[in-house]
Design a protein around this nucleic acid. Structure first.
Lengths: 217, 217
DNA sequence: CAAAATGGAGAACCTTATTTCCGCCGACAC
DNA sequence: GTGTCGGCGGAAATAAGGTTCTCCATTTTG
């Protein structure tokens, strides 16, 4: 246990400075891996790339990869986290275009739904694709990745609550979690089924469901 | 194209009979694989077993395994389908204990939720564990596996609809799909999180959400 | 400049699914 | 009875992919 107070401040600063360049380089390398992975995902429209592909594409080495990431799962988590953070921003921005709290929620839900679908060409996200794997292997990290999105929804729900537009006993955070899961997962399995007549779920339907449920009262 | 009418009926019957024993043997072997897998899953409380384990446990051979299954995914699908069929029966039975359509739905939703959770000791199902993998690799088969459960929910919704207990414009089948996904997936990621204060979602909450949504009207 | 750290190339290693080869054995035909 | 055939156990061979390791060049640092 080396308590930081034992080290003189100047020494710490010196070490800090000497570490900066290395840190910067490392971050740049990490970013190259991330970018390469993005490109590959976009190209093949699927998330089952191989570590080797990412390494080749980023013109780096396997060794370097495992030096910067604890494993493939960390790369996936990084991408996932990043995608979700961007999505959260996008949703927040879109929602701010409305003034009525419920309308904001509607925009948020419907946009999240659209962004979560599998196909729509080769968007950045595709995040629902690897969410399932990560959910079973690293649930805790996935939860932290969900935080920003959860935050947006929680805010919007809180606003609606303040405006007395929610049923009483609706707890913003818990409901936000519920909505997020519901929308994202339902979006994922709504995409490709065209053999049956019913499936192609619409954004409107999911909004109605989340907002009003199915019971009459 | 050998039309069946070209073959004398007695010959067909003879062939049929001679095939019966082989068929029976095959089914028995398949069942042994299935049972072995069940036992292993129950033992280690996880679904990431190896084909070799199943083979060893069932005292059969790899060759035999691949003779009866097209691959590991078929074994998983068989287990999944079986588990869901049983779950559907169980839910149907439980719901029939109620007379009010909405109460039936409530029982169904809450039971499905409980059965879909990860931990509760080492239950048979655990089906939400391998659903994600299968969902991405074999969506069509998963949909057929979902059929019985979807059927139960659809029936219950239709009953409620007949009793005028649903919002108008609620389509039973589509809504059933929505509910099923929502309940199962939310159950899956509600289990182990005890670091935060909020998570442990309850059956009651999910029921309320599905039935009434979050909006005031 | 010499020592140490950094990072590139690839080979090596492991785990797992899947296939293949060999030979036994029981059913069934002749 | 004897020969053939399909199902199957046993084990080795293949294939993929993730992860680790070894050898070496380059860069950084003192």
């Amino acid at each position: 246990m080396t308590s930081p107070s034992e080290e003189p401040a100047w020494k710490q600063r010196a070490v800090e400075r000497s570490i900066q360049s290395a840190k910067a380089r490392a971050e740049q390398r990490v970013q190259r891996f991330l970018d390469a992975a993005q490109v590959i995902i976009a190209e093949k429209g699927s998330t089952d790339f191989t570590v080797q592909e990412v390494v080749d594409r980023s013109r780096q080495s396997l060794r370097s990869f495992y030096l910067h990431f604890d494993g493939k799962h960390e790369l996936l988590l990084a991408l996932y986290e990043d995608a979700l953070a961007r999505t959260a921003d996008q949703i927040r921005a879109a929602a701010s275009g409305q003034t009525d709290p419920l309308s904001r929620l509607q925009v948020a839900v419907e946009l999240l739904f659209e962004l979560s679908r599998p196909d729509p060409s080769a968007q950045r996200p595709l995040f629902t694709d690897f969410a399932p794997q990560l959910l079973v292997s690293h649930p805790a990290e996935v939860r932290t990745a969900h935080a920003p999105l959860l935050g947006v929804l929680t805010e919007l729900l809180a606003e609606a609550g303040d405006a007395k537009q929610l049923r009483k006993d609706v707890k913003p955070r818990r409901t936000a979690a519920l909505i997020m899961q519901t929308v994202m997962f339902n979006a994922q399995s709504s995409g490709d089924a065209d053999d049956e007549t019913a499936h192609p779920l619409t954004a409107g339907e999911i909004w109605t469901f989340c907002a009003h449920g199915f019971a009459k009262h």
